[in-house]
Design a binder for these strands. Structure first.
Lengths: 164, 164
DNA sequence: TTCGATGCAAAAGGTTTGCATGGGT
DNA sequence: ACCCATGCAAACCTTTTGCATCGAA
């Protein structure tokens, strides 16, 4: 299944005259194996190095850029110093909204079908109202996640004053 | 009306022990006077300099950061090298979705009431489904705007192969 | 008078680039 | 064999920071 995605990806850019180098193969593998992990370039680099220690950081930057150009991955800039890449259009997890907890920093994928439908309807509404052609989107919600809300309740965890 | 917003803003941070310096006054004025202009720090700096030529770029960075911390403005990162700031909660133009045309680069504010309601409903849905508390959001749609779509029609502007 | 805010210039640091080399096709 | 992709290190560029000075309260 991941094999298929890989095959699709590599065929696509061989078809377009690009080369399937070892480095590209490895970076793609890393990304596929961390599909749900919200990785930065640095993360990808570190993970790639465990497979091929000689790969260079700038190569990873170039490959990530390349994959972005080819609509294989998608960058999400969460705030000034947090971002990550996500696969586009893996079956069962297309582009979706994200929730970022301002307290614990976690990014949570919003995959609830109801909500996805709702969002799709909203997008369609824009398309027809403004006569735009929408090809992608970035939907980020910021706030406090249920876990952190729980911890904030007055009766919860009254002891243990934690510090950064 | 802008006067009122200004008063609100300055009172808020005087109350919080911050100082209303001339530079802050000017930067706020600039932002209020360009409410719909999607300005970068550099833009704000340039505009500020026409009023007070001696202001320093780092001061503008600091003030913009300050206003962001105080929830007066909001940064929108459109892509790796495009971003801008927007006022939060000016009456009649609260946070709203944006559309970015990949062809002409324009950013268009989506203010259609129907769509805003739709988006609000979607947000509420997330809140209740996940038990999150949402305090802000960034909603960006990418694609081709109606103007550029028009130009792309086969019968429009058939000549003129432009190059970068 | 106090201490937060500013200006200047220098530092930072993530990302990009030039160039010689390597390796897909 | 061709020429795109890579590795390395240097360059880039926007943003941040240290420090002396200024000025709002």
């Amino acid at each position: 299944m991941i094999k298929n995605i890989f095959k699709n990806i590599s065929q696509t850019f061989i078809k377009n005259g690009h080369r399937l180098t070892n480095q590209r193969r490895i970076v793609i593998e890393v990304i596929l194996n961390h599909k749900t992990d919200h990785m930065t370039v640095e993360d990808i680099y570190e993970s790639t190095k465990t497979i091929s220690p000689n790969i260079s950081l700038s190569t990873v930057y170039r490959i990530v850029d390349f994959l972005k150009q080819n609509n294989i991955i998608h960058k999400l800039q969460v705030d000034d110093d947090h971002y990550f890449y996500e696969l586009i259009n893996t079956e069962g997890s297309a582009i979706h909204p994200h929730f970022i907890c301002k307290k614990c920093g976690k990014t949570i994928d919003i995959l609830n079908e109801d909500i996805l439908n709702h969002a799709a309807a909203c997008q369609k509404n824009i398309t027809s109202t403004y006569d735009f052609k929408i090809v992608s989107s970035t939907i980020l919600y910021y706030g406090i996640c249920s876990n952190c809300l729980e911890k904030l309740k007055p009766n919860a965890l009254p002891k243990k004053n934690k510090k950064k």
